[in-house]
Every structure is written in C-alpha cells, then in structure tokens.
Write a protein that binds this DNA or RNA. Structure first.
Length: 261
DNA sequence: ATGACATAGCCCCTATGA
C-alpha cells in the first residue's frame, strides 16, 4: 500500500496538478491538507473518476483536510478531543480497507513566538498526542500523515541557522513533536534517511519567494508517522518533488511511504 | 530589518502562510 501526504495549498487552484499526480504516481491513499473549500463543493465525482473514495473535512478559505483512498473508507472521525482549535478543519481519520487506520492532519503554523497563535499551536500538538497515544493501543495499525509545521531537527532545513528560535524551528515546538514520537511513533522518512545531513531529498516545502526551490532551500515539515504495528509493515519512503516543478505549484510537495499491506 | 509570493474574500486591500 502506497500512502502519501500533500499540502496542496487550495484544492481548487491545484486540482489539475492533483489529477495529473494521481495518474502518474498511483498512490493508494492520499492525505490532503489546506484544501480551502467546503464539503459541498468538493469534487467527489471527479475524484471517483480517478478511482478514489474521499473523506472530507472542509472549511472555507483556510485549512481543510481530506483522505482519498482506492480502498473502502469507513468509520470517519473529524477532529479530536481537547483540540483548542475545535472549530477549524485540521484533522480527519478513517479506517481504510478494514485493515489500517489513517489520519490526515494540518497543524497550525503558529505565525511567530510573540503571536497568540503560537501557544495554541503547542496546545494543539499536546492534545493531538493524547489522542494518538490512544490509537497506538488499538489492534489496528495506525498511521498519521500531514503538514506538522515543525522541523524536528536542524537536519530538517537546508539552512537551519536562518530559522533558529523561530517558527517552525523552536525548541518548544520540537518538544511537542518529541513527545508525540515518544508515545510510540516512527518517522517513515527517517527510517530510510538518517539524521546526518541536510539532505535535499527529504525536504517537503520551499518558500515561493526568492527562488527557494531552484536553490534547493527548503524545510522538512510534512511527516508520515507510523505506530509500532505499522512500522513492522514499512517497506520504503521518500518525497516526490515532481509536482513542485510544475507551473503554479503548491509550496509543499508529496511525502510518501509504502507498507506491506 | 524588510520584503520577497501565493491564496481567498470580496471588491483592490487585508489576513494568512512558514
């Protein structure tokens, strides 16, 4: 099973890119973030034409997450308990093919450490950890992918010094991420690519400004995390930077992993 | 230190992103 996560930065602006990418990359499950549209106008029919079912938690203008799957989608849950941003569409999970539970998350950006949004980001991560820790206790393998808006280590930026003590690079953010990992998750990318270099192959986001992509000046902030049972099924992982080379791209590119399911 | 791009809403300027 090939699972991918992609912050598309507006599904309406990126729909042609998504279809083109689905046809070439052929993922089984796709976790989308920042679809920026409400469920009522989600293109279910066009997605079905590509061979996917969809679970959608949409929102106008900002946020919005979804799960696309070639296999049947059941037991859809939107949001999680104790979420301080409960009125924002940032989390959806579902049982896929009766065999694996998969979540798509869009962690708030936090703006900067002086912003009122910054502590809310930390609270969001702590509450998310509580929910995810429960998921690791269940019999069904659990996977979460999405835009975490956190670079967990210095190696997760091409030029880490530029981001020191600023979002998404602060120690407090990294602590929330470390606690989440500590509850039993493995980072699908870091199983293959060790934390020993600022490897351009692992970056998932490049600023639109200043020709960052051409300079390969990026961040690794989109992650796929596997519970122990899912980690046992891991076979491969990577990023696909092809869509970032297309005309009018999202600033993020897909991160993927394959599992022996 | 600032602004550089992009998106959506709503109406040409503001909010937001990371």
């Amino acid at each position: 099973m090939k699972i991918a996560t992609w912050n598309v930065n507006s599904l309406r602006s990126r729909f042609e890119h998504l279809v083109k990418w689905l046809r070439t990359f052929q993922p089984d499950v796709v976790l989308l973030q920042e679809i920026k549209l409400i469920n009522e106008i989600f293109p279910y029919d066009l997605i079905m034409d590509e061979g996917y079912q969809a679970a959608v938690f949409g929102q106008k203008t900002y946020n919005g997450v979804a799960i696309l799957s070639k296999y049947r989608i059941e037991d859809i849950k939107q949001g999680f308990t104790q979420n301080p941003l409960h009125d924002e569409a940032r989390y959806i999970e579902a049982l896929i093919d009766g065999s694996v539970r998969i979540a798509s998350v869009y962690v708030p950006n936090g703006q900067n450490i002086q912003s009122v949004k910054y502590p809310l980001k930390l609270e969001f991560m702590d509450a998310l950890s509580t929910t995810l820790q429960q998921r690791t206790q269940e019999d069904t393998p659990f996977i979460i992918g999405g835009d975490f808006n956190i670079a967990p280590q210095d190696a997760d930026a091409t030029y880490p010094d530029r981001w020191k003590n600023d979002v998404p690079f602060t120690t407090a953010e990294r602590l929330t991420y470390a606690k989440l990992i500590h509850s039993g998750f493995h980072d699908a990318i870091r199983i293959k690519y060790p934390y020993d270099a600022h490897n351009p192959d692992v970056m998932s986001w490049w600023d639109y400004r200043g020709g960052s992509f051409e300079k390969n000046d990026g961040l690794r902030i989109d992650h796929i995390l596997l519970c122990p049972k899912a980690t046992d099924l891991w076979t491969d992982a990577g990023t696909d930077r092809t869509p970032r080379t297309w005309e009018k791209p999202s600033d993020h590119t897909p991160v993927w992993c394959t599992l022996n399911i």
